[in-house]
Nucleic acid binder design. Structure first.
Length: 703
DNA sequence: CGAATTGAGTTTTTT
DNA sequence: ACTCAATTCG
């Protein structure tokens, strides 16, 4: 045991976590304390020393990428390729189970996965039908997702329903939405988890099959699991079973997606025999970086106390820089990077620039380009979100599942083939009447006395023939199917060169995958997954940076309104999450950390005065190199008329306001702040109005 | 039916 | 500022 290579260069608590067996285990692992390492080593240890087959270990990672990395590392440790492994995200694992078993709960095994784009389209379609203001679709999609991940069905929600206003509508949409999904044999991300859970609950035999197979469960990033995912774990593992969860409450940054830090507390309740191990030695960062980030996170009231330490030296001081404009900030970042590069201290790939929101990337890009520095943006809109790609994918989805109405709607008149609005709406109506899919309605048209014009009938039949032909050839390999689709619909005929190139790239990425496998992969993949971090400076959001590390890190735009983001000002919980986001960003740095804010920023096409983030005040200055020297600016601030704007939202969402003309209404949404603030208010009987509070003379109504 | 124009909404974070 | 959808016109 003493000289086991699997337990080499590990500290005591890490070793304990790895060899612990026979009861549940909760590992509270601070940032950079080697938690992923614990999981990979434990996996290898179980296989090598305890003779557990790799296929009997259920391992959950947060992203597909970390799953791939983990497989790779485990293969190295075991010196052989692991096959049939269950290493993946919750969503990927559930998909794997459902593809085999979902027919037991009344779906077809060739079900379609709807990504949030598809989900949005469906919800908008429903809103249109129910005559609900369509712009609300985002908020509704978000609420539905949270309801689902908290295991509240539409029925339950309606039952509980305080049945007024927004919630009543939400309930109706939710019910319809679930209904439509079922009709289309489609599932959304939350269904992947929820339906697996339902499968296990309604079919204990199937559940037991999996439960028996999984001798051990390993969960990474446990702090970001939601209720449904947690419940799933309890289904797969006995209360005294072999489950190891690893997490850090300070790094929980997905509450908006339904993640429940409470799961860490619940774990100790639901697995009463569990042992807790803390990992507090940090292997990543210098002492100065730990001091600064530690002081900041300490201000959060609700957290497990832990103190990270390192035996690395103090290192360079953390630097904070207040600049005039965002252009200066970008220039500053680029200059610093170039400087370190030219001195030979770092390579370009050693740097990361992190920001709160994607649109900050543009400026930084400009700055880096001006200095000729290579970079890659871990982009918000990925390759798979491009129209031309989504179009082709929609065709492939219909080939596999013609009842998928969302994809069907998308391709019906794409590329334009003379099927117009009036025709489409007749088909829609008919489909609704018969409660069936668009595809099936069109199929009946030749036989039925449908009111569709005869010219349109011809076009529809010819379209249907195209689709049916494609369905017939479905046994060819995936690239061939795609080529045939493109040919049959003359897709390239009027497509720009660049878009054609994108589709060609897609085709060449298709070797050795089944059509179903390809569609699953594209649905579940994320932007970080296919990113190569060796191609220069990495630019990404704080969320994407989770789990990564870089020798030198820039955190930009540390201003009120950006971090913390202004939509989070109202909720105290959200503010804590913003702080954690800041913490996650800082703890990505191994050796050098640069923080910056600016005092003027162009936001929403208006120039705004910015104040430094409130979190900056919590930084101990003795670990810092503090620069507020503010370079001379072309547009000096007029100090007499300079009044810092308090970035506050005039009204809370949900509060009641009185308007002189429309009476009392409920606030739906607030955007912007200061004099640019706008509120959306729903006045019963009048409708939804967008107002500028200063002008509209709104008064808060207190009940 | 389709092209062109207007207009409105959107810019948090993501499996 | 920019994109995408609805509306209007030919």
């Amino acid at each position: 045991m003493a000289k086991d290579p699997l337990l080499e260069d590990l500290n005591e608590p890490q070793k304990e976590a790895i060899i612990h067996l026979g009861s549940p285990l909760l590992v509270l692992a601070g940032a950079g304390s080697g938690k992923t390492r614990v999981i990979t080593r434990k996996f290898a240890y179980l296989v090598k020393k305890k003779n557990i087959p790799a296929s009997s270990i259920f391992t959950v990672t947060f992203t597909n990428k970390s799953a791939e990395e983990m497989k790779h590392r485990i293969s190295e440790l075991l010196n052989c390729h692991i096959k049939n492994s269950w290493i993946g995200t919750f969503h990927a694992q559930c998909n794997k189970i459902l593809r085999k078993e979902i027919d037991n709960i009344g779906y077809k095994n060739n079900f379609t996965i709807y990504d949030d784009d598809d989900q949005g389209n469906l919800i908008r379609h429903i809103l249109k039908e129910l005559n609900i203001h369509e712009a609300l679709f985002k908020g509704i999609a978000c609420r539905i997702s949270i309801l689902k991940s908290s295991l509240i069905t539409p029925e339950k929600f309606l039952e509980k329903g305080d049945g007024f206003g927004f919630d009543e509508k939400l309930g109706r949409v939710y019910l319809r939405y679930q209904d439509e999904l079922k009709k289309c044999d489609a599932v959304d991300f939350d269904d992947l988890i929820g339906l697996t859970l339902r499968l296990f609950e309604e079919h204990p035999k199937i559940c037991n099959k999996y439960k028996r197979n999984f001798e051990h469960i390993l969960v990474d990033e446990f702090q970001d699991t939601n209720l449904a995912q947690y419940k799933l774990l309890t289904k797969l593992c006995a209360p005294d079973g072999n489950i190891t969860v690893v997490g850090d409450d300070d790094q929980s940054i997905y509450k908006f997606r339904g993640a429940e830090v409470v799961n860490i507390i619940n774990f100790q309740r639901d697995f009463p025999k569990s042992r807790v191990i803390k990992l507090e030695q940090n292997y990543r960062s210098t002492q100065n970086i730990l001091n600064v980030s530690g002081k900041v996170i300490m201000k959060n009231p609700h957290r497990n106390q832990k103190t990270l330490w390192t035996n690395k030296g103090c290192g360079d001081k953390v630097s904070y820089c207040l600049l005039n404009t965002e252009e200066e900030e970008a220039k500053f970042v680029a200059k610093m990077i170039k400087d370190y590069y030219l001195k030979g201290i770092y390579d370009y790939k050693d740097f990361a620039v992190l920001y709160r929101i994607n649109l900050q990337a543009r400026l930084i890009e400009d700055g880096l380009r001006a200095e000729g520095i290579p970079y890659t943006v871990v982009s918000g809109t990925s390759f798979y979100h491009k129209k031309e790609i989504k179009d082709i994918i929609a065709y492939m989805k219909v080939v596999i599942n013609p009842d998928d109405n969302v994809s069907f709607r998308r391709i019906l008149n794409t590329p334009p083939r003379g099927i117009g609005l009036s025709t489409i709406s007749k088909i829609e109506q008919e489909a609704k009447k018969q409660s069936t899919s668009l595809y099936k309605v069109i199929k009946q048209i030749p036989k039925s006395n449908s009111t569709v014009l005869s010219s349109a009938k011809e076009k529809l039949t010819s379209f249907l023939k195209t689709i049916d032909d494609l369905i017939m050839i479905n046994n060819k390999n995936t690239a061939d199917i795609m080529k045939t689709i493109i040919e049959k619909i003359n897709y390239f005929d009027q497509l720009e060169e660049l878009r054609i190139q994108n589709v060609m790239d897609l085709i060449s990425s298709l070797e050795n995958v089944t059509l179903q496998g390809f569609l699953d992969r594209t649905a579940l993949i994320s932007s970080t997954d296919c990113q190569n971090f060796d191609a220069g400076v990495s630019l990404m959001t704080l969320h994407s940076a989770k789990g990564l590390e870089f020798p030198a890190v820039f955190l930009v735009g540390l201003e009120e309104g950006i971090l913390p983001y202004f939509k989070t000002f109202n909720e105290l919980d959200d503010l804590e999450e913003e702080r954690r986001l800041f913490y996650v960003g800082m703890t990505r740095a191994k050796e050098r950390l640069f923080l910056s804010s600016v005092s003027k920023r162009r936001l929403y096409s208006k120039i705004q005065d910015q104040e430094p983030s409130r979190f900056i005040a919590d930084i101990p200055k003795d670990c810092c190199h503090w620069v507020e020297k503010v370079m001379p600016s072309q547009t000096p601030i007029d100090s007499k008329n300079f009044v810092p704007k308090k970035p506050t939202i005039p009204f809370d969402i949900g509060c009641r306001v009185k308007h002189p003309r429309w009476g009392v209404g409920v606030v739906r949404e607030c955007t912007g702040f200061g004099e640019h603030a706008k509120v959306t208010v729903n006045f019963p009987g009048v409708g939804i109005k967008k107002l500028i509070p200063n002008i509209a003379n709104l008064k808060k109504v207190t009940l």
